[in-house]
Design a protein around this nucleic acid. Structure first.
Lengths: 199, 199
DNA sequence: TGCAGCATGTACCAATTGGTACAGTCATGA
DNA sequence: TCATGACTGTACCAATTGGTACATGCTGCA
């Protein structure tokens, strides 16, 4: 081991940039080609470094996977923060907006990766397990807040939020599997009708 | 190659029994330990045969995976057929029954495997891809029929069925990830209230 | 100029993988 | 009895894997 050990958790510093850049490229590649049979050599060749470099910056494949999962999670969350809440929008409109964002074809790879990581996490793969923690909780918080703001009682709000989250994910899986955007959109409209009671 | 090639699609015959028995054991093992990093040697050791035997009976790992996925799908479908439709049950009751069956802890491994296979299928893994075809369609058919029987118009029935399927899957994923049975059950009750308008 | 330290590549290693060759066992039927 | 054929195990192979050792370049500083 001749390396000066940058594989610590130090995210800062000049080489941190390179590291972050590598992770970003890695997530892109993984979103496009899957995380299941990722190999350091294959990834390295795809993003233009030798597999030796990946070990150098991340210490091990395991650590790299951790970073990939973490970054992918962050990207996922960014989708939520990207919606601009303009005044005058009904809750149903906001939900429609979020759904539209989430099903952007450009995000398909990202969403596929989400379900792929879920599968690994459910199996206890160490790099993915932490995802389980926030898989529901992290998303419930803002949704419950929205429900309460819209006038629901706290207890019911939690159930409604959990239901909404599950339905969105179920329909997203449907969309990715079938590609039937029109059909899935119709089902989503049906849900919004039931959920918000708007005609 | 000295083998007399039983790896054709011949499911019949005396050795077909052995084959079927091996597949069954394999699905059990895979439901418990995941399909992602399955190795012929590991599987063989777990179910008491040499990896040589698996190649002998299935021709290749790929073919074995195909059989595993197929069998797992069949088991999944059997859950649906196991519910006894007693007269006097409301649609909501039937849904509750199905939900109860589906979330039986003894099926957890099976359900985890379902999501795992979905992930692989979304990535185009050849043994799992065929699943995508029936992932929604196969389940929609009976659900639509039930909706129509309950008085929905055919067009709306399709949307409602699709929505119901997606919600169930989303909540199932929630349950597997969080283990919070009470919370997920509450959300499901909320859904049934919205969906069937009861209470 | 020369030195120090990071960044990168090449070559290599041990382990594991799917798959094959060959040989042994065991039942059945002539 | 013995020969046929299915069934199974052992030993092996080539390829790929994550990870390491070593050597080389490059940059900045004195």
């Amino acid at each position: 081991m001749d390396d000066s050990r940058p594989e610590g958790e130090a995210e800062q510093g000049a080489h941190g940039d390179r590291r972050a850049q590598l992770v970003d490229a890695a997530v892109d590649h993984v979103a496009a080609h899957g995380i299941a049979d990722l190999s350091l050599r294959g990834l390295g060749a795809a993003i233009g470094v030798s597999h030796r470099m990946l070990i150098h910056y991340f210490g091990s494949k395991e650590q790299l996977l951790v970073e990939i999962v973490r970054t992918s999670e962050r990207r996922q969350r960014d989708v939520l923060s990207r919606i601009r809440l303009e005044p005058g929008l009904s809750p149903a409109d906001v939900a429609r907006l979020l759904w539209h964002q989430l099903t952007d074809p450009r995000l398909a790879g990202q969403e596929r990766l989400f379900f792929e990581i879920c599968g690994h996490a459910l199996r206890g793969r160490p790099e993915a397990v932490p995802v389980l923690e926030g898989l529901v909780t992290d998303w419930l918080e803002p949704l419950v807040a929205a429900e309460v703001a819209a006038g629901a009682e706290p207890a019911a709000a939690r159930n409604r939020a959990r239901l909404g989250l599950a339905t969105v994910r179920g329909l997203l899986l449907d969309l990715l599997a079938t590609g039937d955007r029109a059909g899935v959109d119709s089902a989503m409209e049906e849900f919004l009708r039931l959920y918000y009671g708007s005609q």
